[in-house]
Simulated scan of single mutants.
Amino acid sequence: MMFAARRPSRMRTALVALATAWLAGSSAHAQELSGTLRKIHDNGVVLLGVREASIPFSYFDGHGTVGYSQTIALAIVDQIKKTLGLSELKVREVAVTSSNRIPMLQNSQIDLECGSTTHTHERESEAAFSDSFFQYAVRMIVHRSSGISDFPDLAGKAVVTTAGTSDERLLRELNVDKHLNMRIASVRDHSDAFAALKEDRAVAFVMDEPIVYGFKATDPHPDDFVVTGTPLGYEVYACMFRKGDAPMRELVNGVIERMQTSGDAERLYNVWFTQPIPPHGINLNFPLSAAMRALFAHPNDRALD
């Protein structure tokens, strides 16, 4: 007995057509992607460079990575997930230091870094930078009892800074230009530098003003230290990603610009700089400056050096 082949229902036909169209569209979308976004789409993972002790920007609080710029980074990751249409996107945090963050970016060991990286003209030959999310002065932290108030007071003395930073370059230039004969030590990370100051292996720790305020505020004896010195210069922090990646630049800047012009960035700033922060509930008491307010009103990616 012969049976006629069952004809597919209209609903089944429609579902097959819809699935085929979706797959075709998804494939076409993937083919249109390039650079970092293509890499993230294909792997389902974003490699996020994080700092361990850049308080209050990106640091480990005993449970995970937190901070002002870490929050910005996670907002960017969320936008990447939405842009790529992914139901899930794994975030793999990779600890970086001032010395290795650029090589790790160039070697694709990280895809994005929003910590406390200064955007300088020199670094533009090695990496791409987003719109700035923080503007600051370069100063120093010293023991209150040291009698040191400005950089000429450091002549002939041991001074510490963090290796691979723009601050190290500024400090060494000052040493040569002003013939100060400082004994400059460059250490692995900010926490190592502050430890050198606390243990009297150096009389001053020269670094970005908000970083040294962070160490002062979180020390068990904050009144033992003072942040001082005529600024060596003014600089900006930005997120960092690989050069020549226009789609990534557009996405990252879009997130930062929306945060800044909507008021979200100022609210985020207040959380991390004017209120108690983890893990010890210390308040940095570092109000928003006029320069920062102007930056939020007019987002830009200009280096200040």
Results as ranks from 00 to 15, higher is better:
S58P: 09
I110A: 07
I55K: 01
P247A: 03
I141T: 01
G64T: 14
A158T: 14
P247M: 05
Q106K: 15
R188H: 13
V206M: 05
A193D: 07
F151Q: 09
A127W: 06
P279M: 04
I141Y: 00
L105M: 15
S54E: 15
P103H: 09
T117S: 14
I80P: 02
F205I: 14
F3R: 14
A19F: 13
L112G: 09
V160S: 02
A17G: 10
L268E: 09
V77T: 07
Y234G: 09
S27T: 12
A265K: 10
E32V: 04
G254N: 10
L37R: 04
Y234H: 15
R101A: 05
A73P: 01
P247F: 00
F57Y: 14
K216R: 12
F133I: 10
G115L: 02
E124L: 13
M240G: 12
A238M: 04
N107I: 00
S132G: 12
A19Y: 05
S116N: 10
V96D: 06
T218V: 11
P56H: 02
A75N: 05
I211H: 03
T71N: 11
V271R: 08
E199F: 11
K90Q: 13
S146Y: 07
M11F: 15
A19H: 08
G85L: 03
A238D: 02
D61W: 04
G115F: 02
T274Q: 15
M207C: 15
F3M: 14
A196C: 08
V94C: 09
Y136P: 12
N285M: 06
V94N: 06
F151D: 11
K39Y: 01
D189L: 01
Q109S: 04
S130C: 09
A155S: 15
R123S: 05
N253K: 06
Y136G: 11
V66K: 13
V271G: 00
V77A: 09
A28M: 14
R10T: 12
R139S: 05
Y59M: 08
M2H: 11
R201S: 01
D61Y: 08
V176M: 09
